[in-house]
């Protein structure tokens, strides 16, 4: 019965074919189902959101970043609350505490919506069937992107500036020497203080000189005596000349300083030139020092002037002006 055997053989193959096809199908159904937690022990918890951002039935639920369940239903409770029921694997139950927080998130940048459950530091008892988790509003992707955009613009500007600065720093190392030189900065400081003093005194001196000239013009009697006294007039002459020279020097120095400051303000090349030019730094030092001494001398001159004859009288008359 060769024929019958052959027929049986074919039937066996058909049987195998059908069985393996059916098994494959069932296996696929089981695997898909187990991904959705349709099999095995589960329990349900819920959470209420103001906005679920497109979360739907079947989305994943993650606890500490692990898929532990799926969203079973999303229902509107009222105008401000959406009730989300989640099916969670039973074996996860001890790890989720009652005070855990549920948020609606996204899988990656563009992925599916999902519910994230995260623990908080405070301790609590494990969650139970039907418990309602505290929820937090979802992170709105749009909003985040908008904020990020502004931040990015700012960062762009800052980095461009930073790049220019670092480039300059890299090419010149004299900035460091300037920054490290405390003496220079101290000197600049004191020079500025003294300059202020000088200008103050200058104002008062000019005020005095004005008064003096007015007095001289008013007090006609004493002018004759003054003019006849050649010795005194020579001395006065000398003093005025000295005074003139002093103010000239001060003017030059202030001119230099203002130029210097201007260059500093302009930045760019002049800053570099200034910073890398060590001789200029020395000169700066020197000129500041000479401003200092100049100012001291000016003070002394002024004191001396007080005690010379024509001014003595004036100072006595107007002690308040000192």
């Amino acid at each position: 019965m060769n024929n019958m055997a052959n027929e049986n053989f074919k039937n066996i193959r058909v049987g195998l074919f059908v069985i393996s096809g059916t098994l494959l199908f069932i296996l696929a159904l089981y695997l898909v189902g187990s991904q959705q937690n349709l099999f095995g022990d589960n329990f349900t918890i819920r959470s209420r959101f103001y906005n679920v951002n497109g979360l739907t039935q079947g989305n994943n639920v993650r606890f500490a970043g692990i898929n532990v369940g799926t969203v079973e239903s999303v229902e509107i409770l009222n105008d401000t609350a959406v009730d989300v029921v989640m099916t969670i694997e039973k074996k996860i139950q001890p790890y989720i505490k009652k005070n855990a927080i549920a948020t609606v998130g996204t899988d990656g940048l563009m992925g599916n919506k999902l519910v994230n459950i995260n623990s908080v530091k405070e301790s609590a008892t494990a969650i139970e069937e039907g418990d309602v988790l505290v929820s937090m509003g979802p992170v709105e992707m749009d909003e985040m992107v908008r904020t990020l955009n502004v931040t990015n613009e700012n960062i762009k500007v800052i980095t461009t500036n930073l790049r220019g600065i670092t480039d300059k720093i890299n090419s010149k190392n004299s900035l460091w020497s300037l920054l490290m030189d405390t003496v220079v900065s101290e000197n600049v400081k004191s020079a500025v203080v003294n300059l202020k003093l000088i200008s103050d005194q200058g104002i008062s001196v000019t005020g005095n000189l004005k008064g003096l000239t007015e007095d001289m013009l008013a007090g006609k009697g004493s002018i004759g005596a003054l003019i006849t006294d050649t010795m005194l007039s020579k001395k006065i002459n000398q003093t005025v000349v000295k005074l003139q020279r002093l103010s000239d020097t001060a003017a030059i120095i202030t001119g230099n300083i203002s130029q210097l400051v201007q260059q500093l303000k302009q930045g760019k090349g002049s800053l570099g030139i200034l910073l890398h030019d060590t001789s200029l730094v020395h000169n700066l030092n020197k000129s500041i020092l000479s401003i200092d001494t100049g100012a001291v001398n000016f003070n002394e001159n002024m004191k001396a002037l007080k005690y010379t004859w024509p001014f003595k009288k004036y100072y006595k008359k107007n002690p308040s002006k000192r």
Binding site: E7, R13, F17
Partner: peptide, 16 residues
């Protein structure tokens, strides 16, 4: 039935 199985063999198994 027998013919159905035969056809299942030709249509199903032989097309696999």
């Amino acid at each position: 039935i027998q013919e159905l199985l035969r056809q299942c063999y030709f249509i199903g198994y032989n097309s696999l």
